[in-house]
Design a protein around this nucleic acid. Sequence first.
DNA 1: GTCTATAAATAGATAGAC
DNA 2: GTCTATCTATTTATAGAC
Lengths: 209, 209
Amino acid sequence: MARPKASAAADSRRRVLTAAAAEFAGRGYAGANMDRIARAARLNKAMIYYHFKSKAALYREILRDMFEAVRDDVAQVAAAPIEPDEKIRRYVEVIATAAAARPHFPPIWLREVAEGGEHVDAATLDYLRGVLGSLDRIITDGRRAGRFQAVPAMMLHAGIIAPLMFFLATAPLRRKIQRHVTAGPLSLSRDVVIAQIQRVALAQLEGKI
Amino acid sequence: MARPKASAAADSRRRVLTAAAAEFAGRGYAGANMDRIARAARLNKAMIYYHFKSKAALYREILRDMFEAVRDDVAQVAAAPIEPDEKIRRYVEVIATAAAARPHFPPIWLREVAEGGEHVDAATLDYLRGVLGSLDRIITDGRRAGRFQAVPAMMLHAGIIAPLMFFLATAPLRRKIQRHVTAGPLSLSRDVVIAQIQRVALAQLEGKI
DNA sequence: GTCTATAAATAGATAGAC
DNA sequence: GTCTATCTATTTATAGAC
């Protein structure tokens, strides 16, 4: 929204957003500390309040950015001239890619889910609906083409998002459990996990499960 | 651990644990407030500190309780004289049941995952290893019986736990999205979701995916 | 736009009476 | 075991100089 684009000194706003994303991801909304964010952004607290109205407003902006990007990406996938099964694979992939580009995404989203979307405002809610709407369109198109059977978009989405966020967010915890564990290696390759999630989603749609 | 069991007035400790579980689930560790916990337990803050050393100690006790119960339940499943596929179904079921008996479980666990197991102490870590160990035993037994193929316990566990916790924890958020949504009903029956998770887990083990 | 200094509120923890 | 009152530290947010 209308603001100086890359003015020499003033990418400070961008720096605040980056630092805040990391802080919120690491400590949650309540645990995040404005002073720490300022230090990480190489600024001071007052500067954050110059750019953002409040801690809550700053947090909401980060949430919005995440889901706006995902919504746009999956909308493109839904509209692309490709086969239904390929759309499902890409749906998984673009979400995984969006999350990879924003390491703060999985932790923040997991926490947001945990607190019932407490900080999810109307704009973000619309993006979420947009994401589900795109998936619904992919399913419907696939059914029309006789390739998919009916599966609730919400269930399919949860079966994709949940393991994906878990996998991406649990890396530290898996390392912690690993020490002295007897149940084989806990490390999973990112690609293997994504491929598995894609296979599971497709198997449901194609009636193989 | 050696303490008065149900002494007339003194189930206050139990009340604190119950109130704290709800508070931690709703607001996270950092967001939880000791005064609110005290009020919900119909006590005062000082009474909490009489029973528990600190906020952290109180939280850890709740974490431990959750995973101790799950570990015991899945260990029983792994040792039961039943078919491998039935063990997998029960594995899913006992975890779902343990979570249902503790509504605070899914949110707390999601947050704990999000922060890399920050508050997971050695005891809880052992319980977690025990859970994975039991699942590994179920898989191994199934392979020996020629029924299962090799699947990493961690991957299978994540594929079970993640959608389950998501489903259980997202109820409020799903309601929030629901308003004015166009992608069909977002409400999913608990039983349908559990059945689906069981099918997916088994399909992986039986090589159907 | 950026800073220092500080106001104002909140929350974890404890002292001490009963 | 249970309470009230309070200490102390932390933290969000703002005033005001440059």
